[in-house]
Design a protein around this nucleic acid. Sequence first.
DNA 1: GTCTATAATAGGATAGAC
DNA 2: GTCTATCCTATTATAGAC
Lengths: 196, 196
Amino acid sequence: MPKVSAAYKAARRDEIIDAALRCVQRDGYRGTSMAAVIAESGLSAGAIYGHFAGKQEILVAVAERVLAGRQADLEAARVDGQPLSPAALVSALVGGMRLEKATRVIPQVWAEAAVDPEIAEIAGRIFLRVHRLLRTELAAWAAAEPGRVDGDPGAWADLVVPAVIAAVPGFLVQRAILPQFDEDAFIAALPLVYRG
Amino acid sequence: MPKVSAAYKAARRDEIIDAALRCVQRDGYRGTSMAAVIAESGLSAGAIYGHFAGKQEILVAVAERVLAGRQADLEAARVDGQPLSPAALVSALVGGMRLEKATRVIPQVWAEAAVDPEIAEIAGRIFLRVHRLLRTELAAWAAAEPGRVDGDPGAWADLVVPAVIAAVPGFLVQRAILPQFDEDAFIAALPLVYRG
DNA sequence: GTCTATAATAGGATAGAC
DNA sequence: GTCTATCCTATTATAGAC
């Protein structure tokens, strides 16, 4: 029997993750100190370190939280009936991302992933899950549109998935960096450049 | 008359930028200390601070160096004669990027740009230059293919450029993060998903 | 301009009381 | 589990000799 309920523990963890998320959104991962997370959460050093071993472990939790949202978007976009074309899938993916408030956090996670294997593993896992979902959808679409795709639908889908998913980093990076970036115009343009 | 030749000064700066680039490529911006840059360059603290005011100013120089390469790629891809389609442009852009050895540096710059206005300004400037080049090319293509594009070619190009350029972050992020990422397959897939 | 040595401090993490 | 106070290393930047 744990000393405090698992629910309490989870709630505290969530508070801390919330606070850390706001810090990273505001100042980036590099610019976020433990002192900042402590202040933002309203808790104390002791409380934080009671739930996380250190700063890196907090980013792991933040990354899991934010990246898991992307997977949810995609599952929500699945419509029964006709499978989605490349253009429709890209729109669904980016459209979901549009609602994400933590606009600047994901690029921070990617930068850290490029250098920290544990973060890379988390980011890679999400990419792979999204890959699999897209692959299924695209293979079905290719099979239903035999005139448009050469060869085996599965092989075609495997090849094409990374190019389809690429729109997501493209959207997030431009949104995070360009002050005058127009989200709605970007989404409107997707069907004009992607096939399907 | 300066005490040392401008050429000497520039060469020293370049040495330092080279060293910093290797550090950031290896450890990320956050993981790179001034001590690391000093060791990597074989110089001393005094020498470094004689040429740069601090760490941030070195990243500015690194960012300028690496991002400027992207612009060069694109200018090299311009062929006289027929303007390039969206698919052809994306392939040219990503194909150029493929040769960039500093695979992990650009995501570091983007992450820092999300949080540091001076880095954002540099990254934004490069994006805008590439935007303009693409816009010209795409407007010409649209004008030459009247059946495929509705309305004014210039307006169409303005809308479409961000979606076309999005493939670049998509490529770089996946390459930096996914251990099994296949660059050649990605490039081969581009014509399959982009129109033109 | 560049070196060595060092100052100054920021930041991650822990100790011990409650 | 959480708080306050504090330790201690890592790190940026400077001072002064050459």
